[in-house]
Design a protein around this nucleic acid. Structure first.
Lengths: 193, 193, 193, 193
DNA sequence: TATGAATGAGTATTCATTCAT
DNA sequence: TATGAATGAATACTCATTCAT
């Protein structure tokens, strides 16, 4: 409601441009122009270009965490939960959600400090999934395994495949179409008791 | 035999530095210094900084392809092949093979052209794995599925997990230790008939 | 009496910061923060950053002029007057009086207009000293000389030495300790009939 | 001989511009333009803008040191030496020697590190003068005093007066004309036995 | 009076690339 | 082949100043 604040416009424009061209290739001037904001305003709200990226990533993580928290409260069987997690991820991609794309990019390029922060945020999400799996094991739905390793396996699998699915070519289209079902099935075959 | 040529020295130094610091953070002067080569020589052998990266990536892909070709000739059962593919990947990481790290980095940052090239090279490897799976299906070892999607699943899974395993923290250590066995098992549970 | 006005707080904070870090290195925001005043208020009371400096310098000049006027009224012998002028200057420095330090700084850096203003203010002080000398010559205490040149000599001598005395090292300590007596003596040896 | 190298052109242009407008007011682009050199070349030869200033100051100090060394070898009476030091200084100013002007400027503005360097260089010159005075005392020409304090007195006196003499107004003209004789006389009256 | 969000020209510096030798 | 001096467009970021509230 109401017009979005400058900070929001900056984050939105930054997210889009970073996702399209990469963090390094996106200049602060381009962000300012895209957000219809002065360069000075960017630095009024953010300490640096990196802080913009950080905010974007944090927001994306938050969204995923909320989804997982909501999922957990529903008490669905683990198989269904896995299916929904995979679907959720792909639907974010399909919507063309910029930050979903960005999230897959920039894992490595920024300074080590940012990378450390990103790992920490990522670990939060993995922790949620590990919890779901742990409960699934306790309920006898899943075979005994290390929940955290399994969580990273799920996340990694889903992200790596969706990464390829973003390229825009034929292989990408195939993965985008068949990916969700095939991945959810694979994961369940692997996790189930 | 004999001293390596200038081009080799450049590729070797570039690979090391790109992997350590990233493509953008590595200057051409740093490469020149590390390779004990003049800046002029770099441009004598390579058109641009990107071409150095391209060569490094191509070499890495070639090494993997050779491994997969060799694997295929041995006619092992698919379960064993999957196990060896996973193991091979992790052992490259464990050796600290620079280009293996690099391969995981720079997936996204460079110009779109380079990205396209990288996809193409990556697809080569995926194609080899898809072939192995196709043969496994034909031999009744694996359940029917889309081989290319399955190949990307395997590659994506392995790379995404190893990506996290490179961070150097505790989670990374856990993934590095438990990852290969757990992943191979997962993949086989999923692929088998 | 009562709380000092905003303008005073700004001048006080500006004087301190300029003296500590220099005019260029001190931002308007730092002044606002130190004075616990909004940026807007600064521009309400002053036209520009330079005007703050100008006010500080003017105040310092005024203080010196007052001292010199008071000195003149006492009708002391010129030798004594010279001694007191030197002492006064060093005691300002020793007290750590910010504007005394500032006065020695920023002689040159600001825009030409400000420099001109500073010269004019400085000339006021020199004029007072020249007057004292002129009266000393008339009274037969001092040798005949150009009073204005002599005044600049005195001012320059004292300031240049105190400049060096501000550095905080060993030489500075020596100058701070021996400077006042030695300088007063020198000046009198040189001025006296 | 032959055309001066790029580094020389940069130093020359930098010295001129710094002296005219001050260190802060002189941009690197202005130096590049004035020296008819690319910005890149400046950074090829100098690490930073400050390094240019440093080189200029060092050169100026070197020139003065050479003059003082030459003076000392001539074995003139101290009175004559003092006269020549003062004259030398003023003749540098009169020649419009840029670095002489610069030397008087920028005593304070740059970073603390540079200031420390400048003090150290300045102390070298003061040390030479102190030596001359010490020998003068030993020879019975000068009254006993602390040579280093006396040296700073001489330097400070000369520089402070010449500082004022640079302003370009009437007072400046008076100081420029009468300064050398008057100062030399003053100093000798003060130093002599 | 008083505020501080908004501005954008300006800054020093970097770095891939070229080219005369 | 081999060099490295020379280039200059591009970069992230600063900061005095304005102005609507």
């Amino acid at each position: 409601m109401g017009t979005p604040g400058l900070a929001d416009r900056i984050v939105e424009a930054g997210g889009r441009l970073f996702a399209e061209q990469g963090f390094h290739a996106t200049g602060i001037r381009a962000i300012a122009q895209a957000a219809k904001v002065s360069i000075g305003s960017i630095y009024h709200y953010f300490e640096s270009k990196e802080e913009i990226l950080e905010r974007i990533v944090r927001a994306e993580i938050d969204r995923r965490r909320e989804f997982l928290e909501g999922l957990r409260k529903q008490g669905l069987p683990l198989e269904e939960q896995v299916r929904l997690i995979v679907q959720h991820h792909f639907s974010l991609l399909r919507e063309g959600r910029d930050s979903a794309r960005l999230f897959l990019r920039e894992w490595f390029d920024p300074t080590p400090e940012l990378r450390t922060k990103m790992y920490r945020l990522y670990d939060e999400v993995a922790g949620y999934i590990a919890q779901l799996i742990e409960e699934g094991i306790a309920a006898g739905e899943a075979r005994p395994c290390r929940p955290l390793v399994a969580a990273y396996t799920i996340l990694g699998l889903v992200e790596a495949v969706s990464l390829r699915a973003l390229s825009g070519d034929e292989t990408a289209a195939l993965l985008m179409e068949e990916g969700p079902r095939e991945l959810a099935e694979s994961l369940w075959l692997w996790l189930r008791r």
